Simulated assay, not measured.
Amino acid sequence: MVKAVRVHETGGPEVMRIEDIEIPPPGRGEVVMRNHACGVNFIDVYYREGRYKAQLPFTLGDESAGEVVAVGKGVKSVKAGDRVAALSTFGGYAEARLVNADRLIKLPKSISYETAAAMLLKGLTAQYLLRQTFKVKKGHRVLIHAAAGGVGLILCQWAKALGAQVIGTVGTLEKAALAKKAGAKHVILYRNEDFAARVKEITKDELCDVVYDGVGKATFPASLDCLRPRGLFVSFGSSSGPVDAFDIGLLASRGSLYATRPSLNTYAASSEALNKMAADLIDIVSSGKVEIALGGAFPLEEAANLHRALENRETTGSLVLIP
């Protein structure tokens, strides 16, 4: 039996319960891994609330890092004792989990379990956003909302490393300092300023090539006003609530804009794609150009409190649970 954070009904943080569960032996193509650190992400909030549908009951958590303790038939990519990180829906907030071997990534010794759990989902999100959804290159101007969040800090550093001019939005002066340190050349306090007007001022009316928006409702449609003609609006999250249905004519009236709502599951659908993206992430982190900001490591029992802090936008960097 292992301890896990379980959800039997959707709702607020109070629906999360610590329970003892049994992990079955691995079947064909599966492994059992002992979690040393578990990543906490906003997508976990969406599942807990019921915004994203899931079969009840379930164990929260899409990412974790640890060691393989048992392998099923047909598994040749890893063996017992290997250091790995897992990207697989559910099972992360637990002392151990059963996972398909093709959702595992081998970890070099230079990457700690805490760093791996803090960077995997957020770092892979940054990878597809910057390297695939819109291929950021030297000279591009990018706007990053929630620039001091877990994904935001990685985006700022990686975009700067690619040669982009980074503009970030944040809610507090403390977060502004973090975003600046991460590579944002300009930081806008969105609670005190009209961020679209500031972007126009900063860019001298040339605006941005791409907007990366993980906030959602609170920043739309003003984000569209930050884009140059034929610029790209990338909505990859909705921490303030989802973007409502909108008149597609808004894209035409603002300069033939493009808009997309990508997801990591699509980009990392195959084991080959997942490992290629992970290799890119591990390379940029190992180079020192991107540092993973660990916002804190907490015991499993603190999971509900971490969700409250996430929803109130009181966190910075990446949070992990330690079983």
Rank of each mutant, 00 (worst) to 15 (best):
V187Q: 09
M119N: 08
L121Y: 06
A118M: 13
I105Y: 04
S77G: 08
A146G: 15
D82K: 07
A159Q: 07
K122P: 03
T169A: 15
M119H: 07
T89Q: 10
I167W: 05
L98A: 08
K76N: 08
G168L: 15
K76T: 12
K109I: 02
K135T: 06
G152E: 10
L120G: 06
A96N: 04
A94D: 11
K181W: 00
S88D: 05
A94V: 12
Q165C: 13
Q165Y: 10
L153A: 10
L121M: 15
Y93V: 12
E114G: 02
L104D: 07
A126T: 06
L121D: 03
K73T: 03
L107R: 05
G72Q: 01
A177F: 02
G150S: 15
P108N: 02
V142T: 01
A116Y: 00
K185E: 13
G123F: 05
S77C: 13
E174P: 00
R141S: 11
L162I: 09
A101M: 10
A116P: 00
V151G: 12
L189A: 04
V151I: 15
S88P: 00
G74V: 06
A146C: 13
R103I: 14
L178P: 01
A182L: 14
G152W: 10
V136L: 12
L107T: 01
K180H: 08
K138R: 02
A96F: 04
G163T: 03
A164C: 14
A85T: 05
I167D: 06
A101T: 07
P108A: 06
G139R: 00
K175Y: 02
G149T: 07
G183Q: 04
V78I: 13
G92Y: 06
Q157A: 14
I144L: 15
G81D: 08
V151A: 14
Q165V: 14
A182S: 14
F134N: 06
Q157G: 11
A148L: 15
A94H: 08
G183I: 00
G149I: 12
E114L: 02
L173V: 12
M119T: 07
T89G: 01
L121C: 13
A116S: 00
K76E: 13
F134M: 14
I144K: 09
K135Q: 11
K106S: 15
A159N: 05
A117W: 03
F90V: 07
K122I: 02
